[in-house]
């Protein structure tokens, strides 16, 4: 998969959809492409959030919970972005992400992501909107489900 294919995929990620293609190329270039085997961990709950991940291919499961047992709280497939919220608010990872099938992902470093957001005011509003949406959903579902990660929208 080449840089230009990655750019195509990035355009499908909601919060990047309105970013200038030229900038997307820059993001793709500044990111590292990493493969994961099924069972590999992208990041652990509680880790320092140092990067966001865009899944280019494959599927990952999101888990929360401590030692005794963990609860699966969602799935992420190709085109979803993971971990960007924790990067933005400088919080530790809220969930553990594990590959459920071979994954190819783009790892966007924290500094890089923050820089892109700062350079693209429109992106900021998109992110605020998706934050607000997930907050609303979470409030609505608070009774039934204690924790909920924002589902990737396609």
């Amino acid at each position: 998969m080449l840089l230009k294919d990655e750019v195509q995929l990035l355009r499908n990620v909601p919060c990047f959809s309105r970013v200038d293609p030229c900038k997307l190329k820059l993001i793709a270039f500044a990111s590292a492409r990493i493969c994961y085997e099924p069972g590999d961990i992208l990041f652990h709950q509680g880790d320092v959030a140092d990067a966001a991940y865009v899944i280019l291919r494959g599927n990952a499961g999101l888990f929360v919970g401590a030692g005794c047992g963990e609860i699966k709280i969602g799935d992420a497939g190709a085109g979803s972005i993971l971990g960007e919220m924790c990067v933005l608010c400088d919080a530790p990872r809220a969930a553990t992400v594990r590959a459920t099938m071979p994954i190819e992902a783009l790892r966007i470093g924290k500094e890089c992501l923050l820089k892109v957001i700062a350079d693209n005011p429109r992106m900021t509003s998109d992110i605020s909107r998706s934050l607000a949406e997930s907050l609303r959903d979470a409030t609505a579902l608070a009774d039934r489900q204690p924790v909920r990660m924002p589902e990737p929208t396609h």
Binding site: C22, L26, F29, C112
Partner: peptide, 15 residues
């Protein structure tokens, strides 16, 4: 094309 408009101190140059 990628780097044309970036200011010289931009962190992307580290790439």
């Amino acid at each position: 094309e990628i780097f044309a408009d970036l200011p010289p101190e931009h962190p992307f140059y580290q790439q």
